[in-house]
């Protein structure tokens, strides 16, 4: 599939900018995204090629704008929904619930 992920040879992305003494993860959400993706991979409902294809189906402009683990989470969510393990509605509802709880916690 010739999508935005097929970056070999493209121009205009600028310098590479390695980060000295880079940590393995840059934030806790990255740790959790990594772990749930690996754990669900081991669950065995999809293989590595299906995972990659799910990430590659991210909307191209969004793919280029977002980071590695955001690609992973996009792919994981797509596979969970396609495989009938979770529904888009229950994910949305859970996000709203967690946001509301976080706000309530911040106000108290």
């Amino acid at each position: 599939m010739n999508g935005a992920h097929d970056l070999g040879g493209m121009h205009g992305f600028g310098a590479i900018s390695p980060e000295p003494d880079e940590p393995v993860f840059h934030a806790d959400w990255e740790r959790r995204a990594f772990a749930i993706t690996l754990a669900m991979g081991a669950y065995g409902r999809w293989n590595l090629d299906m995972s990659r294809y799910a990430r590659e189906r991210m909307e191209p402009a969004e793919y280029l704008r977002t980071s590695y683990y955001e690609h992973w989470i996009h792919g994981l969510q797509l596979l969970l929904i396609e495989q009938g393990l979770l529904s888009a509605a229950e994910i949305e509802a859970r996000m709203q619930r967690i946001a509301a709880e976080t706000d309530a916690g911040a106000e108290s």
Partner: peptide
């Protein structure tokens, strides 16, 4: 592009997925 901040809903989405799973 080396390390963008996540989209605002990403952190919330990761928490929601982990909690449901």
């Amino acid at each position: 592009h080396k390390h963008n901040d996540p989209l605002p809903e990403t952190v919330l989405r990761v928490k929601a997925l982990e909690s449901l799973l």
